[in-house]
Nucleic acid binder design. Structure first.
Ligand SMILES: [Zn+2]
Ligand SMILES: [Zn+2]
Ligand SMILES: [Zn+2]
Ligand SMILES: [Zn+2]
Lengths: 132, 132
DNA sequence: ATCGGTTTTGACAACGGTTTTCATATGCGG
DNA sequence: CCGCATATGAAAACCGTTGTCAAAACCGAT
């Protein structure tokens, strides 16, 4: 459990995520880095995203097509997302009542080690305008 | 929009789903059919599951590893699931308050065409016992 | 029952996102 | 500055899923 090395690639991936206020795929991020002149390999991008997700630095969600999307959120605590299915723009939302409901459902049916996934997908105002 | 033909394979897949009270993957279902002496092809299993999911006959959810899992539910209306991550056993649950919350969040942020995904994962009583 | 068209089937190949491999490069403690 | 454990990345493997296409099966019409 030694601290990760401070490499150019790690800094580059983190910076790209911090500058991107929406959910992006590993491949998209890789493309952006390539375009920016950084020769970061796709494998390395995947590895960093995976590590960042594991330690909770980034949130992950699965798009309809199965692709994993990543984002650094302002709120480091437990929360959910309202995500635009067209551009990936997302809003962090909390629902204390939902959290309690999930726990109660689990208890009522004897389930342990409970977790839940909850995402709201829609078309954001900006994309609604562009699409009429 | 003609009715699908009544083939042996279609009946077999439907029957297998009806007899299985838990979420199963296409490959698992295919294995069961093979073991049962039915020579149903994997491609065909995928096609039927896809069609059944499209018309709402079966519910679909994505496991952590990205695999799609299918199940025929008793409740044909909108509902969510409490799923055992070990054996796939699931309970159908409803949360009217959650539905309203999701709609309200979307409205507050100007999102249209809203949908949501919500699943609760845990270890069911039976699996808890087996695992101490 | 038979025929003919349309649909369905299934072995196989292709696809696409992700992970593994492994030889090389590099951060970093001593 | 050395030594070495870790990080990198091109290429290959992986794996669930979808596309291909010739052969088989369904079904309405004859
Ligand atoms: Zn948008
Ligand atoms: Zn929650
Ligand atoms: Zn269980
Ligand atoms: Zn709902």
């Amino acid at each position: 459990m030694t601290a990760p090395r401070q490499t150019k690639q790690r800094a580059t991936v983190l910076e790209a995520l911090r500058v991107t206020p929406r959910f992006v795929s590993a491949q998209e991020l890789h493309g952006v880095l390539r375009a920016g002149g950084e020769g970061t390999g796709l494998t390395t991008v995947y590895r960093h995203l995976q590590a960042l997700a594991a330690d909770g630095t980034v949130d992950v969600l699965r798009a309809d097509d199965g692709e994993s999307l990543y984002r650094i959120c302002a709120d480091s605590g437990h929360h959910h997302h309202l995500v635009c299915r067209h551009c990936g723009t997302s809003v962090e939302v909390e629902g204390p009542a939902v959290e309690r409901w999930a726990v109660r459902m689990a208890e009522e049916h004897g389930f342990a080690d409970v977790e839940h996934t909850l995402e709201i997908f829609g078309t954001c105002a900006s994309c609604s305008r562009k699409r009429g």
